[in-house]
Amino acid sequence: MSIDPSSIPSFGMPSGGNQGGGKPAGPPPVIVPDQALVTQLLDQMQLKHVVDEEGDLTAPWEGFRVYFMFRGDHKELFAVRAFYDRPYPLERKGEILDLVDEWNRETLWPKVYTHTHEDGVVRLIGESQMIVGAGVNLDYFVTTTANWTQASVGFEQWMVERLGLQDEIENEEGEDGEPSDEA
């Protein structure tokens, strides 16, 4: 399944400015975001989402999941964390680290790192964070969250391209995008 990051609406575009002709309405309010606001944003983006057993909001894609989490004693830290399901053997960790370093040098978010499981399988995790406990501009929060989500999707596509996995993925799917029975 191919994911088009441009299909996720960008809330960072200017809204057309002042339409009343008078004074600008002023800056958007400063809010302390919560899970209800993020749920509203995901609904506006038309993204499927669920709340997991730990109470974190999760948007699943084929091959990875994006979590929207509030952490800290007073939920003052907001994080968007992507867990990528593709396993890499330990022998390829050096190659994967080189690619992750390239991504981290050339992009702002998500910052991606490896996690090596006890069985020697290497997986990737992407993460972006902001402190929200003292409040944050509503437009900034919405735009940043949407962009972090879009970038998490973009990283998956970037890895597929960099590793030349597109043919392998297409062979695993049938004509209609469903998994092939020929495995």
Rank of each mutant, 00 (worst) to 15 (best):
His49Ile: 04
Val51Lys: 11
Tyr67Arg: 12
Ser15Val: 11
Ala183Glu: 15
Leu77Cys: 11
Lys23Val: 10
Thr39Glu: 14
Asp85Ala: 12
Asp176Ala: 08
Val100Gln: 02
Glu102Ser: 14
Ile3Val: 13
Tyr113Thr: 14
Ile96Asp: 04
Leu47Tyr: 06
Phe70Leu: 04
Gln35Pro: 13
Gln35Ser: 07
Asp181Ser: 13
Ala134Pro: 00
Ser152Pro: 07
Gly17Tyr: 04
Ile125Thr: 11
Pro28Met: 09
Gly133Thr: 01
Pro27Trp: 00
Ser7Glu: 13
Asp101His: 00
Asp52Leu: 03
Leu165Gln: 10
Arg65Phe: 02
Trp148Ile: 04
Gly133Ile: 07
Tyr67Met: 15
Asn104Leu: 04
Glu178Cys: 04
Gly17Glu: 02
Phe83Ile: 15
Met13Val: 15
His74Phe: 10
Val32Gly: 06
His74Tyr: 07
Ile31Gly: 08
Gln166Phe: 01
Leu77Val: 12
Glu95Pro: 08
Ser6Pro: 03
Gly126Tyr: 03
Ala82Asn: 01
Val51Cys: 05
Leu57Ala: 02
Val38Met: 11
Val38Ala: 09
Thr116Leu: 05
Val66Ser: 03
Met130Leu: 09
Pro89Trp: 00
Glu175Gln: 14
Leu108Lys: 04
Ile125Trp: 02
Phe155Met: 06
Asn171Cys: 09
Lys111Arg: 13
His117Glu: 15
Val153Asn: 05
Met13Phe: 13
Asn147Gly: 08
Val160Met: 10
Pro179Val: 01
Asp119Lys: 09
Tyr113Gln: 14
Leu42His: 13
Ser152Leu: 02
Glu172Cys: 13
Gln19Val: 15
Ser128Arg: 07
Phe155His: 05
Val80Gln: 12
Gln44Phe: 05
Asp56Val: 01
Pro87Val: 07
